[in-house]
């Protein structure tokens, strides 16, 4: 592979990219029976023609209403991690989030309900404070489907541990607020 890539233009960059891709794949592992999260298939409710709105119209989600059919949080490749120490409570993430993922905490912070997050990264893009919202590869985390980490609570419980954890994620972040990638 190295020999092949070495004959093309920008050989170093190509080799590095290939290595990066390979390493991200080696993180994948086989999930053994019984190991995953409990999941029971429930066929979707299909209404009859008399019960449907005409013309295929569908009642939409009200502002600030979350999609009740999407609670697994499985769509995202990256998740937002919030540095609450730096947050200025401007509410832009809450305002812009297309899936109304952010819960307002009693002291005015914005805590992402990761089960509803699609990983779009708009929150990190609009956050005006450097290094405050970062988008990190989902592969970095062990929690998932249905039971996600509560970032705000983790921060409240142990600020020092949260700060260290956040700093360990910072070099791996794909999108970092204010900073260019």
């Amino acid at each position: 592979m190295k020999r092949y890539l070495g004959n093309l233009d920008k050989p170093e960059e190509r080799v590095n990219r290939a290595l990066e891709a390979y390493q991200s794949l080696t993180k994948l592992r086989e999930v053994k029976p019984g190991e995953g999260l409990p999941y029971k298939y429930e066929p979707p409710h299909l209404p009859g023609w008399k019960d449907m709105m005409i013309g295929g119209a569908i009642p939409g989600l009200k502002p600030n209403q979350r999609n009740p059919y999407f609670t697994g949080g499985t769509a995202k490749h990256y998740r937002p991690v919030i540095n609450f120490d730096k947050c200025i409570k401007c509410s832009l993430c809450w305002e812009y989030c297309p899936d109304s993922v952010f819960d307002v905490t009693p002291d005015g912070y914005f805590n992402p309900a990761l089960a509803y997050c699609k990983g779009c990264g708009i929150c990190a893009e609009v956050c005006p404070v450097p290094d405050t919202i970062i988008m990190v590869d989902e592969m970095e985390f062990e929690d998932g489907y249905g039971k996600f980490l509560d970032e705000y609570r983790a921060w409240k419980e142990n600020r020092e541990a949260y700060r260290k954890w956040f700093e360990s994620l910072l070099p791996k972040a794909q999108v970092i607020s204010v900073r260019k990638r």
């Binding site: 013309g55 295929g56 569908i58 009642p59 939409g60």
Partner: peptide
């Protein structure tokens, strides 16, 4: 708030 003209396929 409603959606109109969705993609619904055979369902």
């Amino acid at each position: 708030v409603i959606s109109v003209a969705p993609q619904v396929n055979e369902d």
